[in-house]
């Protein structure tokens, strides 16, 4: 099964089994991972699902679409080069993605 590792800002990690086609945000919310708020439920309107993706994973992801990039200017913790909105990231077959959540989403 594909999996996603969520590490919080203190360094604590959780590994969650994911379903192909779900978003990285949905996967987190369903298993109660703290650190991802996702107020708007994935409609690209809140920027509270912000994550930093680890280098290896970054290359495997499709690049940000224009609106994801725009919304990343609205995050609570400043964006970095590896910032993504997790509601826009789809879990694919065999993926083993590692993301870090920011200290705050709001």
């Amino acid at each position: 099964m594909p999996k996603v590792t969520y590490t919080d800002h203190t360094g604590e990690s959780r590994i969650v089994e994911a379903n192909v086609g779900d978003s990285v945000m949905e996967t987190a919310v369903r298993s109660g991972v703290p650190g991802i708020v996702a107020e708007c439920g994935g409609s690209l309107s809140c920027a509270t699902c912000h994550v930093y993706v680890d280098e290896a994973g970054l290359a495997s992801l499709p690049p940000r679409a224009e609106m994801e990039d725009e919304m990343l200017w609205g995050t609570a913790e400043d964006r970095r080069d590896n910032s993504r909105l997790s509601c826009q990231l789809r879990v694919t077959d065999g993926c083993d993605l590692r993301v870090t959540t920011p200290a705050t989403q709001v």
């Binding site: 107020e39 708007c40 409609s43 809140c46």
Partner: peptide, 18 residues
């Protein structure tokens, strides 16, 4: 508190929330 539904939810979620 943030789990309130005051901005709706889903595809019509308030565009102006921020």
């Amino acid at each position: 508190a943030r789990e309130h539904l005051s901005f709706g939810f889903g595809i019509h979620y308030c565009l102006g929330n921020m």
